[in-house]
Every structure is written in C-alpha cells, then in structure tokens.
Write a protein that binds this DNA or RNA. Structure first.
Lengths: 143, 143
DNA sequence: GTGCTTATTGTAACTTATTACAATAAAAAG
DNA sequence: CTTTTTATTGTAATAAGTTACAATAAGCAC
C-alpha cells in the first residue's frame, strides 16, 4: 500500500468509520490503476481475488469515498461515472473521435469559477468536468 | 406544433431521415416540457397516448436527435443524462443541497474554451456542463 | 479472548439502459 | 394506388445501477 493510501485508511478510522476488506480493496484497485475506472471495471478487478464482494458494495463504497473526499466521480459525457483517487484538482479533455484524453489543471478554470460565483451568488464546489472535442490528430475529420 | 418544431421536422426530412410517429412524439414532449427530461420521464409522458412506443426507441431517438443537433444531452452530475431542445447554448449551475438550478450563458465560458483550445490544440465542441455548488440560500449550511 | 453494538455487507428484487435481430411502415418509384 | 426499398421499430434478452432488509463482522469494552 502506498503512503497516501495509508493516509486515507487512517483518515477513515479517525472519522469513526470502519476499515473493511471491500473498502480497502476498492481503494487499492483505484491506487494501482492510477487513473479512473468504472464501477464495473473495479468489480471485475476485484472479483478474481474477492469473489464475495458484490456490486452494491462497490457502488456504496464509491459513494462513501466520494462523500468523504477520497475519490472523485468524473462524468464521462456518455452519462456514466468513473472514479479516481483525489489528487490535484483537474479536468479532462476528451477527443470524441479517438477517445484520447488529456488532463488540464483546475487552475485554468479558477477564474471562470470566481466569475460564476460573483455573478450568481452560488458557491461552487470544485468538481470534475470532461470537455468534449477533437484532438489535433482528429480535428481535420471533424471539420 | 410550434414554429421551431416544424423547422426541426423539415430538417429531418431534408437530411433524408424519416419522420416517424415516435420521433415526432418525443420532440413534442421535449418542446412542451420546455426544460430537460430523463429518457424515463419521456417514456412516461408518452406511454398513455402511445403505449406501443418502447424504451429502446426513446433512447435511440434521443441519440439520433442529439447527433443531428436537435437536442442536447446534459449530464446531471449523478451519472445520468437528461435531454432538452437545443436553443441558445447554456450550462447549468445546480445546488447540491436543494437542487435549485439556474442557467448560465455559454458566452461566459467562451473565453475559457478559447484558452483551452490554444493551450491544448484540441477543438472543443460546445457541450453542456453542470456546475455543482451551493445556492445563496443553502450556502451557510455548506460552510 | 469474549461478548456487545451497530456500521457495513450480501442476497434478492427491482429500475434504468443497451444490444441483436426479425417485423414494420415511411418514403420514393412505377 | 401498388410495389419496392430500407430506415426505423418492437420484442426479447442482457448489462448496469439501485433499493430493502436481514445477516455479518469491525471496533470497542470488559
């Protein structure tokens, strides 16, 4: 387990929640993957080693981890959610033709967030956005 | 049928597609609703009058209408999609506490889009984003 | 370690979304 | 109007996501 994974597990116990086998396993899969995974992908990663871990447990724990700020839910544009370990805040830019994705720092969106907060009175919580478009390679096709 | 609905149906035929009963009915429901609806909501609106129209037809037509630019799919943040008639490009700002939604003009995001395009080489297609946060009324609770 | 408390889990049932393919009906031609 | 073509549909089966509730096991006290 990585250093930051240990930090998360300590946090979970410190907040009075239980450190169960499925919960740790889900975190480990997300850490090992590095990027974002769908609930089904996580289930498939886990199933060989822990065949008793059920889908509802995956969904409930992902929601639990999200509400506690340990993972982020990223809407993929097709109306499904993927999950990833919370690191630095960022967003994605995905090519709708070939699927290539690049990360963009949240700092690029910060000015927009501030402008939106001023003009609407809302306080925005930083969440993940996926911007769709055509990557430089596929751009000619899209035109 | 409204003027712009007529425009859409003409466009569909002009592009060589067929103007079927389910397709028109789905468009009408979206026009009458004014805002965004889930596929299931559309199905429920339609079912009393057209009981033979099936769910797959709803999903396929929403996808068809989206690909042809007549409706917009809006990810709601919970991992589902809602659909609405394409009018002026806009986004939503939703309160994660009480659910209140307000619209913001896409023009507010245009500068960001241009900056992203310059720094990444991608060409962004205008899509809908839902920004989550707390509305002025619920802001105190979220703090 | 043993027992208690209750957060968390698995099972079962259900809702929502998607796919495959044969049947249908919209549009065009005769 | 009738026939032909094929985009579009409905049916049936499946995948993905959610809910309800009784069973389990994590953490705590003894």
């Amino acid at each position: 387990m990585t250093c930051s994974a240990t930090h998360v597990t300590e946090q979970i116990r410190a907040r009075g929640f239980r450190l169960t086998q499925p919960r740790m396993a889900i975190l480990n899969v997300l850490y090992e993957a590095g990027g974002h995974l769908t609930p089904t992908e996580i289930f498939e990663h886990l199933h060989p080693k822990l065949p008793h871990v059920s889908e509802p447990t995956i969904y409930r724990n992902l929601d639990f981890l999200r509400l506690n700020g340990f993972v982020r839910a990223t809407p993929t544009g097709n109306g499904r959610l993927e999950y990833e370990i919370v690191g630095h805040p960022h967003h994605h830019l995905r090519c709708q033709d070939c699927g290539t994705e690049i990360e963009i720092e949240h700092s690029l969106l910060q000015p927009l967030y501030e402008r939106l907060e001023q003009s609407t009175g809302y306080r925005l919580t930083e969440t993940h956005h996926t911007f769709l478009g055509y990557c430089p390679r596929c751009k000619p096709k899209g035109e």
